[in-house]
Simulated assay, not measured.
Amino acid sequence: MSKSKQYDGVITALITPFTETGAIDWPAYERLIDRQLEAGVTGLLTVGTTGEASTLTDEEYEQVVKKTVERAKGKAVILAGSGTNVTTKTVERTRRIEDWGVDCALIVTPYYNKPSQTGLINHYEAIADAVSIDIMLYSVPGRTGIEIAPQTAAALCHSNKNIVAIKEAGGRAERVSDLRARCGEDFVIHCGDDGLALAFYALGASGLTSVLANYDPEICVACYNAWVAGDYQTALRLHDTLRPFAEALFIENSPAPVKCVLGMQNSVLEYVRGPLAPVSPDARKKLMEIFTAYTQNRKLVLS
């Protein structure tokens, strides 16, 4: 298996569960990790957007990363978000997660600054030169205000051997074709949107970085495995089942909706940290309607 193939499949973008007092709920986090491993996910992404990394203290950030490595190293690929909107800070943070045993750094485009594509190249090359672990680029213009152009991704992956992948979360499946054409077959493209995963697979993406998998890793893994096995009808049935629910998990700002659903499962408490807020009553009602239909349909397709 080539080095890049280790990222093929479903990577769960882990939430960070909190207690009533606002502390990290470590038993809940350990249960969450174990559930993912039992379901057969390829990897675990910690301290990313879904993990509310921007609200963690430096000490908490370190604890969460080290706990993930301790619990799952060797059982799944471990990724950690280390991007900031300052190049020197991102270099420092990425060096630290390398020392802590992470396999791959997920590095979001600098937010707020909105650098040019040349600025992005300089930013990512400085990071790649400073570490030896793999780097997954993260293009999510809805949150950062800037997109990684396909030609920028190509320049980076061709000149830096440890820039091996991109998490594409711009909501446009056609980007997969552009990225593959410019970056080549060995460059890993991960879908960053559960509802678009099957379309991404069909265009040549090799995996999904999933929010839904926090609640239901089994269906995400089953859909991916069905596609890889050539069982397209099963993959389509699974996709049709999960898509409305996956979209509902963004009815309000993530990860509040997925924490709400996990709370109903008694897996975690629903708490999020400010400036995020719990799911509103109207959104909760709609989410519950979709969730109820999902659980019924899921039994049929996974029975």
Results as ranks from 00 to 15, higher is better:
L203C: 08
T144V: 12
T68N: 02
I24P: 03
T12W: 05
F187W: 00
E20C: 01
S303G: 14
F18T: 02
D240N: 09
T57R: 11
F291E: 05
V69S: 06
V47N: 13
V272M: 04
A197W: 09
A105C: 09
A293N: 07
T87R: 00
S254F: 01
A202Y: 08
T49G: 13
P281S: 04
N297G: 08
R71D: 15
T144R: 01
R180H: 14
V10C: 10
I97T: 01
D231E: 13
D129E: 11
G192T: 04
R93G: 13
T152F: 05
F245I: 11
E185R: 00
A23L: 11
E168P: 13
L276M: 14
P255V: 04
N253Q: 14
S132T: 11
V258M: 01
Q151A: 06
G81I: 05
A169K: 02
E125F: 01
A229I: 09
Y271K: 11
I251Y: 08
T234V: 12
L179D: 05
C223I: 09
A248P: 09
V64S: 06
L262M: 14
L196M: 02
K286Y: 04
G195M: 05
V102H: 02
V258C: 06
E70K: 00
Y112G: 04
D231Y: 08
K285E: 15
R96K: 12
Y201P: 03
V77P: 02
L179C: 08
L300H: 06
F200W: 09
L302A: 08
Q36H: 09
I148C: 09
K114T: 14
G274P: 10
R35N: 14
T88I: 14
S254W: 10
K286W: 02
I11G: 01
A130G: 05
I121L: 09
K285S: 15
S177V: 10
V279F: 09
G170T: 08
D240P: 03
L249K: 00
T295V: 07
G184Y: 01
D186P: 08
I189N: 02
G48M: 13
S206Y: 04
N297K: 01
I163V: 14
G142T: 10
A154G: 06
I24A: 03
G192Q: 03
E147Q: 13
G40F: 13
D186R: 00
N214F: 03
L238S: 07
